[in-house]
């Protein structure tokens, strides 16, 4: 997987990520301290403080390990976009977001149909007809297995109540 990359080089954006980890750990520690301060050693805030202190310590070590590695390339920004968050990923995450927002509104069946169709078309590149056929087939299987066999209550959709 990603670990198979050259170990001596930093991955694009890795430095920023590790700074974010440190910032997050510091915030977490401060918020843990805010729970019960140093009132006593068996207070609710002690264990969160221990956990966030561990995070802080290890994120500092991660940072030190990163500094020892060489930088990836000159145009770091473009390779961050290309390797870590390519357009395809952003689009798919956008699809998922739209899907989970739409699901309670228009119901499981319609939102899944649109989501599956759009994603199949984008990722599989076999044209709209095959994507539509595949959407219908997979939706039918999911519906039969989960609604009928597993008896899962699928989101109904507040805007189209009663239609499906």
């Amino acid at each position: 997987m990603s670990g198979a990359q050259k170990e001596s080089l930093r991955r694009p954006g890795e430095m920023v990520f590790s700074i974010l980890l440190i910032v997050f750990s510091v915030t977490a520690f401060w918020q843990s301290y805010a729970i019960s301060g140093l009132r006593g050693l068996s207070e609710p805030g002690v264990f969160p403080m221990l956990a966030s202190a561990t995070m802080l310590l290890s994120s500092l070590v991660i940072m030190r390990e990163l500094m020892a590695k060489g930088s990836t390339s000159q145009d770091r920004q473009s390779s961050f976009l290309r390797d870590i968050v390519p357009l395809r990923l952003l689009v798919v995450v956008g699809f998922i977001l739209a899907y989970v927002v739409a699901m309670p509104l228009i119901g499981f069946v319609f939102s899944s149909a649109v989501f599956l169709f759009a994603s199949f078309w984008l990722l599989w590149r076999k044209g709209p007809v095959i994507s539509a056929a595949l959407t219908l087939a997979s939706l039918a299987i999911v519906y039969i297995v989960f609604r009928m066999v597993f008896q899962v209550v699928l989101p109904g959709g507040s805007m189209i109540r009663g239609i499906i």
Binding site: V92, I96, V100, L116, S119, F120, R125, V142, V152, L154
Partner: peptide, 17 residues
């Protein structure tokens, strides 16, 4: 390309359920 959207659908329905 077929698996990934299906994983997402199952994950979402599962979490919702």
């Amino acid at each position: 390309a077929v698996l990934i959207p299906l994983i997402i659908v199952l994950s979402s329905v599962g979490t919702y359920a």
